[in-house]
């Protein structure tokens, strides 16, 4: 861990976060948007693990909260993909810009 400085890890996870944001903004497919959200959560997890080894009060804290983030990512995937399947059954589309029932 002290081989590479903390700021390099933070820059790396920042790049991962930016790529995820770009994916959320530009993908049309809802599943593609969900995949990009997983990238963003993963970047946050890398930060938590890196901080748990350098700046945190006790070394377990970061890892425990990274576990919580992984659990919430699994919840996001399950509920999001259930919504996608229900939407596909009702409207026969998975593209976010074609779902404009409530838009005028």
């Amino acid at each position: 861990m002290n081989l590479i400085p903390l700021s390099h890890i933070l820059i790396f996870s920042l790049a991962l976060f930016g790529i995820g944001i770009y994916g959320v903004l530009t993908r049309r497919n809802i599943i593609g948007i969900l995949i990009s959200i997983e990238l963003i959560l993963n970047a946050a997890n890398i930060n938590l693990i890196a901080f748990s080894q350098t700046t945190s009060l006790s070394p377990e804290t970061g890892q425990v909260f990274a576990l919580f983030v992984i659990a919430i990512a699994a919840i996001t995937a399950a509920v999001g993909l259930a919504i996608v399947l229900a939407l596909y059954r009702a409207r026969k589309t998975v593209f976010a810009d074609e779902v404009h029932l409530l838009k005028w």
Binding site: M1, N2, L6, S52, Q53, T54, T55, S56, L57, P59
Partner: peptide, 8 residues
Amino acid sequence: WPVNPSTL
């Protein structure tokens, strides 16, 4: 970034 030596 502050470094906590006990977690290093």
